[in-house]
Design a protein around this nucleic acid. Sequence first.
DNA 1: GTGAAAGCGCTAACAC
DNA 2: GTGTTAGCGCTTTCAC
Lengths: 348, 348
Amino acid sequence: MDIKIVDVAAKAGVSPATVSRVLNNNSNVTANTKEKVMKVIEELGYQPNAAAKNLRSQRSMIIGVIVPEINNSYYAEIIKGIENKAYAQKYKVIICDTGNNKEKELDFISLLMNKTADSMILVTPLLSDEELCHIADMSYLIGVVGRHIDHHNIPCVYTDNVKFSKDVVSHLVQQGHRKIAFLSGYADAVDSYERLEGYLKALREHHIPFHPELIENGDFSEKGGYEAIKRLVEKQADFTAVYAANDEMALGVYKACAELDIRIPDQLAVVGVDNNRISRYIQPKLSTVSQPKIKMGRAIVEKLIEQLEHGEPSQERVLVLDSELMIRESSLAPVPGPSGSSPVTPGS
Amino acid sequence: MDIKIVDVAAKAGVSPATVSRVLNNNSNVTANTKEKVMKVIEELGYQPNAAAKNLRSQRSMIIGVIVPEINNSYYAEIIKGIENKAYAQKYKVIICDTGNNKEKELDFISLLMNKTADSMILVTPLLSDEELCHIADMSYLIGVVGRHIDHHNIPCVYTDNVKFSKDVVSHLVQQGHRKIAFLSGYADAVDSYERLEGYLKALREHHIPFHPELIENGDFSEKGGYEAIKRLVEKQADFTAVYAANDEMALGVYKACAELDIRIPDQLAVVGVDNNRISRYIQPKLSTVSQPKIKMGRAIVEKLIEQLEHGEPSQERVLVLDSELMIRESSLAPVPGPSGSSPVTPGS
DNA sequence: GTGAAAGCGCTAACAC
DNA sequence: GTGTTAGCGCTTTCAC
């Protein structure tokens, strides 16, 4: 079978305790014995059994990460940031893909809380604030990315949805638009709510009346965006610009516009959020909001590990990172048509 | 502290062994006691300690996955397939991103072999066949995706590079092309080698002479493709079509063509491999080879778990999945110019 | 500075 | 069908 610590100890002529001390860089070992032990470890190719180590030390050096969709570039980038930082700190990362299923998310959480993972990162979880606080109250360490939670023991890293949404709408207004539609994500997602809030605040600041019929819900997917914009057009809503809650939905708008012969940005300006890689490659290039995804991943790991290893919450529990409005082609054009007419109605 | 199995046993008036039996669905328990125990488990919210369980049972229910780049849609999709299948079988997945660094890959392997993961999936590893066989010979179970390994105990799932490469070139030939360039990936990658092989075989079958100057190496990245095609153009190579070893490199070709005012597909036909999501969104839509990425992920997990749980290699150690040539716009056009002139030279 | 021994929480043989 | 008990392989007091 595998070689274990007693084997090393025997061959090196020391006790298992000493081998353990050498492995864990415990200072109370003579340079001499240390060298001796290291040599035997090398010779035998000894690798400490992780399961035994975990049981004894009560930690697994594993961080769990729960995301809605692994294969969505937004989450994939955050995961990359998390994984790279974790590796640098000698932690491993377990990935869980919920497929936007709340049951699965809860299942993953209980699956990892049993000492499988020392801590968990929830990326824009489907759970309510209360549910998240409840986990933290069981003195299990969790971190949240993409959302603010009001709990003294939950580190959060996110960008300011309200702020960048106002920036998006202000940009559109500066381009001359006043009839701006908003395509929301899941109705119950925090991001949807806050982006809508930013949209409304910007309208208000620019003294633009709010028209509820210019808001449609989607689900953050291309299909959702496609259907939402179609609904808008079908009910003959009057708008010259669209703020889509993310790039996926903006992609759906592109698709619908292609079918309906609506030209972007001449007849309709479009802005998304996330700066998905695709947004730079489609025609016209999509204006969007760039979030520091990798940095967000790194930051949350940093906070979590600090807390795991020093026992106390890191100085700044909450980190709000800047996002950047990337103005590209899809929102740069003279505002179409005279006020009152609806340039996006097909055939007009 | 956390509540443990003895606590449950005490409260239920049974022994720890019985609780364990109930938890592991061991049949030798009365329906009555089972119910009684379950109730207490429920009441106390008992969750078995994973570390202890792992140590005792010598398995962690964790599968390690090592990929070059998490945030590349090709790998992200494979990971999705792996994760979803693993979850369905009650396994968890640890993700390792090597960033195409062989040292890191080796480090991850030794990090996970210590009973941290019951098995590992290497997705197109940087290691040599010998190195992989060496791991398998230590009776540690590994699986490989995207590559064939000749070892009786290493399950492999991949698509036939040679076959689809021949299909790509044949398609180009059918479109009338005879001067076809090949942009390779890493010179030492198996995929590069095999795709080149398919390219050569197709040329031979169509009695097209092979011109070594039409081959350039890249590194599977957009930048690599960009630089490779630029080198081709600079040395005034004569070609009307390009087969790029993957979509990333094809994207680099698009970029270079935009700069050099070369129109795709009128002046240059382009085909890639991977069917990255972007390939459907760029203009013109990129012809490419679609690989069943999610299916590949599912398949390797299936084989691994079968072997883990039944001890013997699954019936079919090797699974070669079909890929599909997706003919889109980038390869559909009359062949440009008369034979002998080089239509891709800028300004010609 | 080093060794002996206890025990992390669970499962599986072996009794009964 | 259920209980008793002996470890899984490591770390960490506590002696010396």
